[in-house]
Design a protein around this nucleic acid. Sequence first.
DNA 1: ATATTCCCCTGGAAGC
DNA 2: TGCTTCCAGGGGAATA
Length: 274
Amino acid sequence: MPELPEVETVVRALNAALLGRSIAKAVFLGKVRVPFDATEATRALRGRSITGVRRRAKYIVVDFDCDAALLAHLGMTGFFHIESASSPYEKHDRIAFLLTDGEELRYADARRFGFVRLARVSEPAGWPGELSFLGVEPLGRSFTGNYLHERAKGRKTPVKVFIMDQEIVVGVGNIYASEALFAAGVDPRRPAGSLTPGEWKRIAAEIKGVLRYAIKMGGSTIKNYRAVDGTEGAFQRVLKIYGKKAGTCPVCGAGVETVRLGGRSTFFCPSCQA
DNA sequence: ATATTCCCCTGGAAGC
DNA sequence: TGCTTCCAGGGGAATA
C-alpha cells in the first residue's frame, strides 16, 4: 500500500514525533523475512539522539547523532506506531524500540514484506549505500519529461511498468502510476520507447501533480495503510481511475478497462488514453 | 541488457 | 454459516 505519498506522510509524522528523543533498547519480536539483530542495534543506537527522519524513494531513514541509522521499508503492510512501553503488543508487531522516556516505537507488518535494519550513513546527509541503485526523486528538479524520454529510448516495456521501475524514477507504485497516466491521457500498455517528448512532458507533470496532491491528502488508504497516529489517508476518495473496475471514466463515461501489466492490475480509459 | 514470471506472506472480500 | 478462491499498494530473484 505505501507509495511515495504514504511514506512521506509517515516520515513527516515520525520526524515530528521522534526528533531529539533517544533509544534505550531494541527488541526483536520475530516473524520478519529479514532478521533483525536487536543486540547489534542496541549497541549501535543506545543513548544516541535522533536527529531526523528522512525519506528516499519508499525507504525511511532514521538518523542519529552518529553514523549508524535505521533503514526501513514498509513493504505492503508495514507501519510504525508509538505506544506506552507498558501497553501490550499488537498481533503483528515485529520490532520494538524502547525510548528513554518510557514510550516505545513499534514496527508492525502483517504480510512481512517490509523490513527494518541497521545501516550506515558514511557522510552527513548522505544515504545508506544500499540505496545507491535508486533512480531520481519525482518531486526533484532532475525529474523531467526530457529525462524520461532519454531513459526510455529503445525500451519496449509498457510505459506503466517503466514509470514504476525504481531505477528510473522512485516512489511511483501501482495506484499513482495508473492515476498519472490517466491524467496524462496515455495508454499504459504503450511501449515506453514509443512515446513522444510531449507525452513524456505531460507524464512527468502529472506524476508530480498527483504525488503532491496525495501528500496533501495524507496518502491513500485502500486496505491497510494507516498513518503513525492511526488515521487514514483521504486520497482514495478522489481516485479517478485506480480500482474503478466495472466503473466508468469520469471524463467521457466510457467503461474502464482492466489489464495486467508487470503482474499488477492496471486501470485505464480506452477512449481518453491513446 | 531487457522483459516476463514467480514468489515471499497474511487477511479481507467475494464467490459458492 | 462456512469453506474456497481470489486479490492486494512492493521488491527481488529466477527465468527466457
